[in-house]
Each structure stands twice: as C-alpha cells, then as structure tokens.
C-alpha cells in the first residue's frame, strides 16, 4: 500500500498542520500541546471536548467549530490521546460553564479521559462525561465492550447545538446521553486498512467475502460471509441497527451512513438508497440523513449504518447551525 506521507511518525502532525492551514477561519492547531481548538471561542457556554485515535478522520478534529466541538485531542493512529492533551484542551476551552467529554467506549479512551478528569477535578474544573457505545456487533458477555462508532458524530452535533443554545452542563450531558441511548450502529467491511507504522493490512479478506460486525482501526468483525448484492447488505445493516430501537410505524429517525474511508460515493450513496427503502419498509420515517465519510478507518472499504430514533428536541438540535470542516449548514453566526 502506497501512502502520501513523510514518515509514519509524522503522518498525524502533518495532517493537523494541513488541517489548520486549510481552515484558518475555523480552527487552531497547537503542536506543542497536541490539540485542535476553535479559532474563536464565541459566547460563553458549556465546552465540548472529545478525542481519539487518529485514522478515523474527519472524526473528532474535523468536527471542531461552531455548533460542535470546542477542542479535539488526536491520538496517534488508532491509539487514544494522552492525559496531557486532554488536560491542555480542557484548560484552554473551559469558560467557567463546565466541560462535557464525549468519550468513545475503548479502553484507551476511557482510561486516559478518566486520568485527565481526575487531575482536573482537583483543579476545580466541572466535568461531565458521556460514553458512546452504539456498536451492536458486540453482545452477551461482550456487551460492555460495545465500541463508539457513528453515533459519536450525532452526539457531538446534538450536544454541541445544546451547548450553543446556552443550556447548562447537566442538560447538555442529558442530550448527549439520550442520543447515545437512542442510537445504534452496525458496520461491515470489504477489506482491511493499512496502519502507516506497520505498512501491512490489518487482516486478509478473500475476494467475494465481507467482514461482518467490524469496528474501527482494523478491528476484525464477528464473522465472515459471502458478499451479497447491495440491497441485501442494506437489509442486514438495517436489521441489526434497529433491532434494539423501538422502530414502529411512524418512528422518526436520523440516519448516518458513513463510509469507512475506501468505499466510493457511487457505491455508498447507492447503498443508502437501499437502506432508506429497508427503513421505510419497517415503517420508519427518515427525517434527516447524512451520507459520506464521517467516521472512517483509514482506507478501509466498508460502511457503517447509524440509526437515531429522534424526537422534536433532537431534530431541532440537528438542524441548528454548524460550521466545521466536515459538517456545515444553517446561517453562519
């Protein structure tokens, strides 16, 4: 696999320098402290901080800006940020109204945000944490390991909008938790990604096969099945994603179909049409949708479907203005 990079060690910092130069109106990158923050803090409000392993772009760094994150802490590829970054981000963006951490449910993220929170709690910062664990692939005695996947984008958007509206920390955290509770994700891959440090594929997948129930970062799935036509793939994704949601006639949903980084628009948007059909067949009303590469796994071909069972409040926060690299709509402030 050929990659545009100088060395594996500089790939992430090169991305961050490039990101800041591409969007000087939106963000600042602080290379000393390893954090990305909003270019302008805006009116005082609850601050939202997230972070995770790099390689899942645009996740978190591409969602820094008005209406979403105040700061993102990028780790090295597929590895969580370290406490020093999270501490620096919190100290930079806390405007005295408290800070919400959006933490994906991986051991590294849980432990490092936990260590940072312990350090900062002693300094008087008011911090709430919401853990995102929308991945339905893991169940039974592995249920506690459910990964944070596509719902992370929804949580960052909706909590970001709630914070922007002036809601206090406990309300912003409640919006985030409700979003997690009402969202589920299921993912499939048609091939592995290649970690820049190792240069080799995360797994081998024979032609004609689909890896089912994958996570991010080259994590293998639950099983391997023959790749069916796209309408059957959509049916399987919808089946798994909505199984735990109360989707009956007229249920309102917000749908995120994210590519894993290596699936062309032609295929992804085509797949979305079948997802839409499969959801409507179950009586769901697709109220809003987002299709594209939003939570990825480097160049992995594949897709993850996230379904949020929405309501008036969540849809209103979804429609609120947002101005980031990866999501932009509504009137600019």
């Amino acid at each position: 696999m050929q990659k545009f990079m100088r060395t594996a060690d500089t790939a992430v910092s090169d991305y961050l320098h490039g990101l800041a130069r591409a969007h000087p109106d939106l963000i600042r990158y602080d290379p000393e402290r390893g954090i990305v923050v909003r270019a302008e803090a805006g009116a005082p409000k609850v601050a939202i901080v997230s972070g995770g392993g790099s390689g899942c772009e645009p996740l978190h760094t591409g969602f820094v800006g008005q209406g979403m994150l105040d700061a993102a802490c990028p780790g090295s590829v597929f590895s969580s940020p370290v406490p020093r970054q999270i501490v620096a981000a919190t100290q930079t963006v806390d405007q005295g109204h408290g800070v919400l951490y959006v933490v994906t449910n991986y051991g590294g993220e849980i432990m490092n945000f936990g260590l940072a929170g312990e350090i900062l709690g002693r300094e008087g910062h008011e911090i709430e944490k919401v853990v995102v664990d929308d991945d339905v692939a893991l169940d039974g005695d592995l249920r506690h390991l459910r990964r944070g996947m596509g719902a992370t984008v929804l949580v960052e958007k909706l909590a970001g909008a709630a914070a922007e509206s002036g809601a206090p920390l406990d309300e912003v955290a409640a919006v985030a938790r409700r979003t997690v509770q009402r969202s589920r994700t299921f993912a499939v891959a048609l091939g592995p990604c290649v970690h820049p440090s190792t240069g080799s594929p995360a797994f081998e997948l024979p032609a004609g096969q689909m890896e089912v129930g994958v996570g991010l970062g080259g994590d293998r799935g639950l099983s391997r099945e023959p790749l069916p036509p796209a309408d059957a793939v959509a049916e399987a994704l919808v089946e798994r994603a909505v199984a735990e949601l109360s989707i009956s006639d007229g249920a309102r949903v917000i749908v995120l179909l994210s590519g894993l980084g290596g699936t062309p628009e032609l295929e992804l948007v085509g797949l979305f049409g079948h997802v839409h059909t499969a959801l409507e067949r179950r009586g769901a009303a697709v109220e809003r949708s987002l299709v594209g590469n939003y939570v990825t796994s480097l160049e992995s071909p594949g897709a993850q479907l996230t379904v949020l069972h929405t309501d008036d409040e969540l849809t209103r926060y979804w429609d609120a203005p947002v101005r980031t690299r990866a999501l932009r709509w509504g009137a600019p402030a």
């Binding site: 392993g53 090295s76 590895s79 969580s80 370290v82 020093r84 051991g107 590294g108 260590l115």
Partner: peptide, 12 residues
C-alpha cells in the same frame, strides 16, 4: 509513559 504511549497500554 502516560504522556507518550496513549491507548490502554499507556495508561496501564
């Protein structure tokens, strides 16, 4: 180690 490794192994 805590501030360079990252991930679960860095924390542990």
């Amino acid at each position: 180690i805590v501030n360079s490794v990252g991930g679960a192994s860095g924390a542990l």
